[in-house]
């Protein structure tokens, strides 16, 4: 049934020299040239990138030129795409207009109060949903997400009524409270994504090494979260700085900067408007530059 076979080691295969890897012969092959097709393909991608970038950047450059055009050139036409000189005449004209500087400071203060409130209230909640599994966590997240579905308008009007009753209408605090409401969902979600990105293991390791939970948070998670929290704070400030609608409804004699500009928009000369837009724009650009590393982290992860 079975054929007997040898269990001895089989004869080795005919002796061969030890095989090394095959040695290539002749000169090394010429470096592959970029083919036109490959080059063209790359060029198309760059062209697309540049067109999109111009669409975004050109208007910003133009408003910059508009804002710094000297008074003498104000009515020159066609306009020069490179200004003949850098002049702050428009900007200082804008800043000297009644109430503008006050409104500027008011906007800054509103922004700072908003940061303190939104982060002070929102960051603990963000930490909680990042670190703990607890009953109601999903419901809370859902509520937070849902708040974004409601237009600002719907909140501003009853708040204006309420503020008149409490006596904080037309005040910095009133606007800041409203801005905190607008910012809070973002702060909660952003800070939670910041804390999620810090491995829980780190805090646990600190606890096994002698920290209480509070110490572990202060010594490990907080320092690691700080850049992300700063970015969140800066973005909160931008939300507040940019809001026009709520500020327009909630203030009258004490407007924030956007509200002040809006109220005189129809009567103001164009160079006033351009300077105004430029002044509003500069902090925004700086902010995006500061938090550029966090853009994807902040917004990308918020959506999940």
């Amino acid at each position: 049934m079975t054929r007997a076979h040898t269990l001895e080691t089989p004869p080795t295969t005919p002796a061969r020299a030890l095989d090394g890897p095959p040695v290539p012969e002749g000169p090394p092959p010429p470096r592959r040239k970029h083919t036109w097709r490959r080059l063209g393909n790359q060029a198309l991608w760059y062209a697309a990138a540049i067109v999109l970038a111009l669409f975004i950047a050109l208007p910003i450059y133009l408003i910059f030129v508009s804002a710094v055009t000297p008074e003498a050139d104000r009515y020159t036409y066609p306009k020069a795409i490179v200004p003949s000189a850098l002049s702050f005449e428009n900007i200082s004209f804008f800043l000297r207009a009644s109430g503008v500087v006050d409104a500027f400071w008011r906007s800054c203060i509103v922004g700072i109060i908003t940061i303190v409130l939104a982060l002070g209230i929102g960051a603990p909640a963000g930490y909680a949903i990042a670190r703990y599994v607890f009953r109601g966590r999903d419901a809370y997240r859902l509520v937070i997400l849902a708040t974004r579905a409601f237009p600002v308008v719907i909140l501003s009007i009853p708040l204006a009524v309420l503020y008149r009753q409490v006596g904080i209408n037309d005040s910095v605090l009133g606007v800041a409270l409203m801005h905190t409401t607008l910012a809070l969902p973002f702060t909660v979600l952003i800070t939670s994504s910041v804390f999620v990105s810090i491995p829980r293991d780190l805090e646990e390791a600190a606890q096994t090494l002698g920290c209480s939970p509070a110490q572990a948070f202060r010594r490990i998670s907080l320092p690691l979260a700080l850049p992300g929290l700063t970015a969140a704070a800066i973005f909160t400030w931008v939300l507040s700085w940019n809001d026009v609608f709520a500020a327009a409804i909630l203030t009258l004699r004490n407007p924030t900067l956007p509200a002040r500009i809006l109220s005189s928009l129809t009567q103001a000369p164009l160079h006033f408007q351009f300077a105004a837009a430029f002044v509003m724009l500069v902090p925004s650009l700086v902010v995006i530059f500061i938090i550029r590393r966090y853009l994807l982290g902040l917004w990308g992860r918020v959506v999940k």
Binding site: E204, A205, Q207, T208, L209, G210, C211, S212, P213
Partner: peptide, 9 residues
């Protein structure tokens, strides 16, 4: 709590 257990992990 972990800190009082004299363990290392």
């Amino acid at each position: 709590p972990p800190r009082a257990r004299r363990v290392a992990m």
